[in-house]
Computed example of a mutant assay.
Amino acid sequence: MYQANKQRYDQMLYNRIGNSGLKLSAIGLGLWNNFGSVDPLENQKEIIHQAFDLGITYFDLANNYGPEPGSAEENFGRIMKSDMHAYRDEMIIASKAGYVMWPGPYGNWGSRKSIIASADQSLKRTGLDYFDIFYSHRPDPETNIEETALALDQLVRAGKTLYVGLSNYNGEQTAAMAAIFKELHTPFVIHQPRYNMFNRQAETDLFPVLEKEQKAAVGFSSLSQGLLTDKYLGGIADDSRAKKATIPFLSPVQVKETLATVEKLNQVAQQRGQSLAQMALAWNLREPALACALIGASRPQQVIDNVRALDHLDFSDEELAQIEQILGEQTPIDWSTR
Rank of each mutant, 00 (worst) to 15 (best):
D60G: 09
D53F: 06
G70E: 00
A86P: 12
E73Y: 07
I79Y: 03
K45Y: 14
L54K: 02
P69F: 01
S82V: 13
N75T: 06
S82I: 13
F52D: 00
F52I: 04
S82N: 14
H85T: 15
E68A: 15
F76A: 01
I56E: 00
S82G: 12
H49G: 12
Q50E: 15
G55K: 07
A86Y: 14
Y65K: 02
G66V: 07
N63W: 03
Y58R: 11
D83L: 09
R78I: 14
P67H: 09
H85Q: 15
I79W: 03
N63H: 11
P67L: 12
A86T: 15
L54D: 01
G70W: 00
A51N: 10
T57W: 08
E74P: 07
T57G: 06
F76W: 02
S82Q: 14
H49M: 14
H49C: 15
D83K: 11
N75F: 06
D60Y: 05
K45M: 12
T57S: 13
M84W: 11
F59Y: 13
I47P: 02
A86H: 15
Y87Q: 01
E68P: 14
I47L: 08
E74N: 04
A72K: 05
F52G: 00
E46S: 13
P67D: 07
T57D: 06
N75Y: 00
N64Q: 13
A51I: 01
G55I: 09
E46R: 13
I56Y: 00
P67N: 12
N63V: 14
G70T: 07
F76N: 01
L54N: 08
D53L: 05
P69Y: 05
D60N: 09
S82E: 15
P69T: 04
N63G: 13
I56H: 00
Y58W: 12
Q50W: 10
D60T: 09
N64F: 07
Y87D: 00
F52M: 08
M80D: 01
F76L: 10
Y58T: 10
G55Y: 10
E46F: 04
I48C: 09
E73S: 09
L54F: 03
A62F: 00
Y87F: 06
T57P: 10
A86S: 15
A72Q: 04
F52N: 01
P69L: 01
F59W: 09
N75M: 09
G77N: 12
G77K: 09
